[in-house]
Structure formats: C-alpha cells, structure tokens
Design a protein around this nucleic acid. Structure first.
Length: 188
DNA sequence: CGTATTTGACCTGCGC
DNA sequence: GCGCAGGTCAAATACG
C-alpha cells in the first residue's frame, strides 16, 4: 500500500476537503484542478493513475433535461428507420472525465449518488468486463464506469464523466469513507 | 407494481 | 473503405 497515495490530499493532508468531481466542491460549478498526473498512455494495457480531460465541447446549453420540444417530423425523417435503433447522443461531447483507482472488493462504489447500470462491455486490455452506470437523478446526465484491473482484481478503476447538478442523496460522511478507501496508483 | 439489473443488438469513432 | 473496439439503448427479467 505504499505505492498508493491520494493526489487530492496533496499527500500532506493540508487540505481539509480534497477536490472531487463527485459533487461536493463541484456543486458550485467549480472546475476541477489540473489533474495532470502522469499520463500513462504507453502503459501495457494498464491505465495507472488519474486522468482528467475537460473536453471543451460545445456544451453551451446544459438543459439536456428538456423535453426536446417534441417537434416530430413524421415524414422526411424516418425514411426507413432501418433496424429501428437510434442513438440518443452519438456526439462525443464528453464532459470532464475523472478516473481513479480504488481498492475495493465490490465494483459498486457507494459515493452517495444513485447509479443505474445501463450496460456492460468487455474490453480487450482487461479480462474483466467494464460496467457503465448513469445517475438516475432527473437532469443529471453524469455517467460512471467501473473497470476492474486484470492483474489486480482488488483494484477497481472508477471513471466519472460529467458533474452532478444536484446534491448527494446520502450524508457526506459516507463520502469521506470513500476517500479513505480511495487510492491512486502511483508508479513512482 | 415499480424500479433496477441483465443481456443482446446496434451505432460511432478510429486505425489500418 | 473495412474492421475493430468501445459505448449506448432497449426489451425482458428479477427483485423489493
């Protein structure tokens, strides 16, 4: 466990409350600090460390929860519909992405929010399948993906995408507990 | 009965 | 242009 440490706490516990994408400090809309931490893109199929990417996508309007006006066009739109499968948001307008590793026996990390699993896919670099979760809160399109490492099944990589626009459904006390078990893999 | 989970199919982006 | 990998949705099922 010496190889694990929390970059959020500055490894000096000088900060009373570390910054997190979960909500706490993010609820106000504050952007996360430059988590430029050792980008292990050349790793042997093993993402180690914490990565953050704030895609400045044209996310001007945050009212994704709007009913979309429902201006349907029964004509000149379907034109076949093919398999009848349509994509909700194929656009890769990914918001802030935060990935960190935690040592937990369970894949599901109770961070206080309500997550609904909407998919599961097996990745090549990992022999364990990746689980996709989405916040069930209305208007909150935050997504989370859980990936277990192939080498260390005890290590679970949790990637948060987006920022919660609501408060935690559970007391923050639980959150601190998560921080306690949260560990970022430090190569050196 | 309502909600969450599961699983398969389908779509999109990127690499070659 | 095609193939691969990743990501998402939708219907069915399980559980509370």
């Amino acid at each position: 466990m010496d190889n694990y440490q929390l970059p959020f706490s500055s490894s000096s516990s000088s900060a009373t409350q570390p910054v997190f994408p979960f909500g706490l400090n993010f609820l106000g809309g504050s952007l996360p600090p430059p988590f430029s931490f050792h980008d292990s893109s050349s790793s042997d199929g093993g993402f180690l460390g914490l990565t953050s990417a704030e895609e400045g996508a044209s996310e001007v309007k945050d009212d994704d929860h709007q009913p979309n006006d429902h201006a349907v066009d029964p004509v000149a739109d379907e034109s076949g519909e093919k398999a009848g499968k349509k994509k909700g948001e194929p656009k890769k307008s990914r918001r802030q992405r935060f990935a960190f590793q935690t040592r937990s026996r369970v894949d599901i990390l109770d961070d206080g929010y309500r997550w609904r699993k909407y998919g599961q896919k097996a990745v090549k670099n990992n022999k364990f399948p990746r689980s996709y979760y989405k916040c069930t809160y209305q208007g909150c399109n935050v997504k989370k993906q859980v990936q277990r490492l192939t080498g260390d099944e005890e290590v679970v990589v949790t990637t948060y995408e987006g920022v919660h626009s609501h408060q935690i459904d559970k007391p923050n006390e639980n959150f601190e507990h998560i921080l306690s078990q949260m560990h970022i893999y430090h190569p050196f």
